[in-house]
Design a protein around this nucleic acid. Structure first.
Lengths: 252, 252
DNA sequence: ACCTGAACACCGTTCAAGT
DNA sequence: ACCTGAACACCGTTCAAGT
């Protein structure tokens, strides 16, 4: 099947089989190979650039072939997210510093999403049912429990925390995509450009209609993604402590 | 230009000009008319069903025509979101109950998103620059200030709060869309079906690998969207109070 | 300046046909 | 059972041509 040809490349003699040619080696397809390619493409080019077609092409076939191994794009996304969730490593709960550990887990999740830009889009609305996402949820719950958080609050908090991390990752990706589009169109679009433009816009607002925004342009545009993310997870974790303590006080 | 024809419909004589025919009356296009249609379609059929083509069709023209009034889909989305943001009515700050007012503002925003299912997708990554979104941001900031929150925290909190509301709305829409797809395929997909399935799945998990999730299946699946949303905004608002108080204590 | 039709370069998914 | 090519019903956007 694999027709072989021999080329003379400078001083080298190179033997090439048709299977080695451009599209891909012709191995058997499998769920895992499909997910491997999807994950690799997402890592390299972001969620937007990955499609049933782009995956199929890299596997040397057409998009229809994938449907023998994967129900649809939605299921494929779940499988990819599952792999990504496994990357956030999770600490053994220590009641002394459960809150810091919780935050570390969330940072790890954000880092895993960031490694595959845009992937977090697929987690919005996803109910954790696969291995990796379950492990993450279990770990978040374990940390909450180590902190003495009531079960019901821990369960809801695990959801809210994961949702917040995902939405931050999605927002970041929107900016990245906009940057790409701007770059392709030859427009300047560094982070500083955008921040400067927003700052100027806020300052230019009518002071009678927007007294706060116009006077606080500085504060509104202060802080990079990291600082804002830290603020967000701190709000949530401190809020969780407060709500939990309030409930405990009510019961006593 | 409008060629007229006269038809006999039963006992009635009907005069129809070409402009009145099926697609739409041929008024001049405008930004506002385009946004009107986009908003109406989103309200009726959700974000997924709205496209440059569907809007153009309702206006009796082709998609290319829209580009004379709107730069691209992104800009159109901004205009739509701006209109939606105006719907959340905002209270005059009362220092006695700023926190409740803040939550009410967030509930109003969620309600506005829900009236246009999926619209919240478009807000992820959007920087508020138009009227409606600015008014909302200004109001959120005013309430935080009434609560004695430091400017920097207020600014960051306004972002986090809006992001949380949007991400809840997006998640809900994912479920709605999945429900539609399931209904179209003839599968059952009520909320109870899904909750029951998830509950069963958690219960079935290996107790040694997932001791918490498997034993807390009840608690994990308790609470509807409303209850979970309330929990989320409470975490954020209580967290904001806590962080603000901590900073004040540090400075003293 | 505004509008248009046709085309470009994409999507996810289905389906009949092949092995 | 697995794979395939071709087609279906969509996208957003561009562009030359019309008024």
């Amino acid at each position: 099947m694999a027709t072989e040809k021999t080329f003379q490349v400078g001083p080298l003699r190179v033997r090439v089989s048709a299977a080695d040619a451009q599209p891909a080696p012709k191995e058997r397809l499998s769920r895992d190979r499909i997910v491997d390619v999807a994950l690799a493409q997402m890592k390299e080019r972001g969620y937007e650039a990955v499609s049933m077609r782009s995956i199929a092409k890299e596997l040397g076939t057409g998009p229809a072939s994938l449907y023998a191994h994967v129900a649809n794009r939605d299921e494929l996304d779940s499988l990819v997210i599952d792999r990504i969730a496994r990357q956030a490593d999770l600490p053994a709960p220590d009641p002394e510093r459960w809150d810091e550990q919780l935050k570390a887990g969330l940072r790890g999740l954000l880092a895993a999403f960031r490694e595959h830009p845009g992937s977090a889009r697929a987690t919005l609305g996803m109910i954790p049912t696969l291995e990796g996402t379950l492990v993450h949820a279990e770990a978040m719950m374990a940390l909450c429990r180590a902190g003495g958080i009531q079960d019901q609050y821990a369960a809801w908090a695990a959801d809210v925390l994961a949702l917040y991390v995902a939405s931050v990752a999605v927002e970041e990706d929107v900016w990245v995509e906009r940057g790409k589009a701007a770059a392709a169109a030859g427009r300047p679009y560094t982070e500083e450009d955008v921040v400067a433009a927003v700052h100027a816009h806020f300052r230019s607002l009518a002071a009678d209609r927007f007294p706060i925004l116009s006077s606080l342009a500085d504060v509104m545009t202060t802080g990079d993604g990291e600082e804002r993310f830290e603020f967000g997870i701190t709000l949530l974790v401190e809020g969780l402590k407060a709500v939990s303590a309030q409930a405990r006080a009510r019961e006593a």
